[in-house]
């Protein structure tokens, strides 16, 4: 039962990951990316991390992917598949990807990694455990994260501000 869920999720996640890069229309690519992120959230549920899965759906699928799709619609580039994407570059990309796959796969495939096992006797970490960690050991990190988000907001606002409107109001000296 679970295994079939795992295989199904893998097909959806990896398939839509490939689709997000290879689709003809950039917009479909963005949607495929969102589906791939949903697949990752599915893995999180299988791995007994429902809170993180919710967070993934809310932030990644709900905010990041939607933001990306909006940007795709704003920057309707005339040619989404460029001539610059030469065959040589494509072969180099496939070779590099395969090289990493084989390297990491061989490290994973050796006997030490396959000894890693999931433990079935431990309790599941629920929201309480995560919240406790967040408010004790990681509390300074949480405060710094607030500053990071503030920095992102200030930076994005500074970038989005229209210069031409502002200049009309400023005295020239």
């Amino acid at each position: 039962m679970v295994d079939s869920i795992f295989i199904g999720l893998s097909v959806i996640t990896i398939g839509s990951a490939i689709l997000s890069l290879e689709s003809r229309e950039l917009l479909y690519g963005g949607i495929a990316l969102a589906v791939s992120m949903l697949g990752i959230a599915g893995y999180f549920i299988i791995l007994d991390a429902p809170f993180v899965a919710m967070f993934q759906i809310a932030v990644y699928v709900g905010a990041v992917a939607v933001l990306i799709i909006f940007t795709v619609m704003l920057v309707r580039a005339p040619n989404t598949i460029t001539k610059k994407e030469t065959r040589k570059r494509k072969i180099a990309g496939i070779l590099l990807g395969l090289a990493f796959l084989i390297l990491a796969g061989s490290i994973l495939g050796n006997s030490a990694a396959t000894q890693l096992k999931f433990n079935d006797t431990v309790p599941i970490f629920d929201v309480q455990a995560i919240g406790k960690e967040l408010l004790t050991y990681y509390s300074p990190v949480l405060l710094v994260l607030a500053l990071t988000l503030a920095a992102a907001v200030i930076g994005a606002l500074a970038l989005a501000r229209r210069e031409d409107i502002e200049e009309r109001n400023e005295p020239t000296n």
Partner: peptide
Amino acid sequence: TDFVMLLVAWELMSIPTYALAAFNKK
């Protein structure tokens, strides 16, 4: 002294500089 702290501080350093590098918008 913690990896998570290091990561968040790393991003707090980087994100403003991405915006600052593009500050000459013209």
